[in-house]
Design a protein around this nucleic acid. Sequence first.
DNA 1: GATGAATGAGCATTCATTCAT
DNA 2: CATGAATGAATGCTCATTCAT
Lengths: 204, 204, 204, 204
Amino acid sequence: MKKLNTTHSNTDNRKKAIIHGALECFISTGISETSISDICKKSNSSTGSLYHHFGSKEKLAAKVYLEGIQDYQKGFVHALEASTDAKSGIFGVIAYHLKWVVDHPAWAIFLFRERHSGFMGQSEHELHQLNGEFVNKISVWFFGHVASGTLRKLKPDVYQPILLGPVQEYVRHYVSCAHKPDIKNVAEELALAAWLSLGSEQKE
Amino acid sequence: MKKLNTTHSNTDNRKKAIIHGALECFISTGISETSISDICKKSNSSTGSLYHHFGSKEKLAAKVYLEGIQDYQKGFVHALEASTDAKSGIFGVIAYHLKWVVDHPAWAIFLFRERHSGFMGQSEHELHQLNGEFVNKISVWFFGHVASGTLRKLKPDVYQPILLGPVQEYVRHYVSCAHKPDIKNVAEELALAAWLSLGSEQKE
Amino acid sequence: MKKLNTTHSNTDNRKKAIIHGALECFISTGISETSISDICKKSNSSTGSLYHHFGSKEKLAAKVYLEGIQDYQKGFVHALEASTDAKSGIFGVIAYHLKWVVDHPAWAIFLFRERHSGFMGQSEHELHQLNGEFVNKISVWFFGHVASGTLRKLKPDVYQPILLGPVQEYVRHYVSCAHKPDIKNVAEELALAAWLSLGSEQKE
Amino acid sequence: MKKLNTTHSNTDNRKKAIIHGALECFISTGISETSISDICKKSNSSTGSLYHHFGSKEKLAAKVYLEGIQDYQKGFVHALEASTDAKSGIFGVIAYHLKWVVDHPAWAIFLFRERHSGFMGQSEHELHQLNGEFVNKISVWFFGHVASGTLRKLKPDVYQPILLGPVQEYVRHYVSCAHKPDIKNVAEELALAAWLSLGSEQKE
DNA sequence: GATGAATGAGCATTCATTCAT
DNA sequence: CATGAATGAATGCTCATTCAT
């Protein structure tokens, strides 16, 4: 009478359905504006079930956020660390960022459209840890290339803005409208821009 | 015989108080998370008064937003159009942006921390018009300098991200923590980065 | 400098405008559902003015009601007392009722569509007195004709319902829809019905 | 294994309690003047529960109305159609009407004291359908007896007013005061009145 | 008399969360 | 684990009324 051998139980499917339902709701109406009942309808689950699996709206939102950012960051770091030199690293991560956005449109909207302070609640710790490691790895990479002279020496705070600010800004706009970007060419131009700003070949 | 010379009526003061109270609340807890009652407490006004003057929470939020963005954009365009050449224009607007953020910390948090789609409601039209003119003026400036060869020719969509993405990203971070930036030097570095990305002197 | 010789001052006009504005609002949305502000808009007056002249919403509603019912009752009693015999009295008041409804459509809706208990508040006394006299006069008329044998002897409570119930019911329906009745013929049929019910010629 | 044979679930009881609580409130203070909180107190339920089951105040009011009118109309039609001739039909429905009022005093006040246009909102359709069938059945009955010559031929619009106007008017008065009528005798007199007005035996 | 800003209690409704089944 | 009825605090908003000008 027991369920034998369902490797991925219904439980897992249910959880996934809720997470995706929540994501859909969050991006189409905002986190605060999404009610538990909205999520239940979208994911064909019951209030009780949702609470059984996630405990609270806040924890569910955090779960959604972490799920996405983890995937994003893992690929990002991989792209960076797989690079053979500074220039290819910069081109790599910009291309990666754009591709990730195109491949995960819902997550992209959720992660990059708004700030998420205040919604992480108890899970803020987990997020901070994640971000700490992420920033750390990026910094290590940067400092290595600054030390070797391939990247210009700047105030530590500006590396990430200069590297990612333009793509982020571009994506934020792309994500607000519904319009698909011509990734290939845009990636090239944005990456080149970052490289021109960060690389150390003398100019001025 | 009445009301001679009350330059700023109580009505105006009341409205300003409400707008500023709302701004304070919005940035410290978020728009959705701010209740009308919060705003009333903060601005020492009554529910009725708030509604008498603004009609709804949505319209109030829109008013707050428009008030801020109008001031920001006016100065921005001025800085751009006052520039004598492309390089000084770029350095000018970056410096302007950072200075505006430091001078109007609350507005900066409100305007630059989150997207505001969905909170403009009926006022979206007014905002679109405002943004339209703003983007237009910037485009005109850019195309002029591209035509004259001082700026590189790129896809139209990437100019603004490359110009402002880094400062925005920097500011977003600065605004999340509470830490005052070393504006002077940071402005210089961010402006130079933008110039290196956009200027047409051959490098690569 | 004083207003000389305005027989009907602006004050009177203002009061009339408010009463009629209120009546319009009351019949189109209901008393409770009509706000003071609605009435002000409809009558081009200010809140303050309305309160200056009428003191409260309740008193205004009462004034509107009394104004109407007084006019109605005066004509009714006149029609009754001017009659030469029972039959002509009955035909007279039924015709009067229908004509009054057609001539004062707004008042008719207001007076005959709903009960007005609870809205008279302090003015209930005035209304009771008015109704008392009205019912009294009708009763006197009835009893006279019962005594003289032209009208059947019935329980006192049923005379008015039998006399007016049908027209009231007819009017209530006519007033709910917007459809003009063929007064002439309908009046004849309804009056005859009342006469058949009340008159004493033997039948059954 | 669960819930065997709970004929009337708690849910049903809860709904009934709310409907009756609402009815009580509506007749004692009016629909608009009754607050949701009043109904909750009267019915020992919570706001949330009320909204869970009825969706809105308007829908609840409609439900209360429909519940009552359905019961009233069903019995009315039955009394009419069970009659063997015109006269017994008329006497039957008048008696039925009065008896129903006495047996369901709260419903009677609610149904017959005020017009309910405007409070049905979305449910107006359901009501119109109900009323349509009701009026239809009555008309069929009337036309049958007119055709066979037992009832006088009149304009279609006046049959119902003449038949029911007097009782309605009588009941409306009875319902405004709290005084119990001497049903038996009154029913007789009102029914006779209707019969005298409608029946075709020559008189005048 | 006229005006309309100000007040704050009150209202319908929503919603995260709990819990019995 | 799943369900959905129940809860009640909280929210945005309305409105009769007051009062300074």
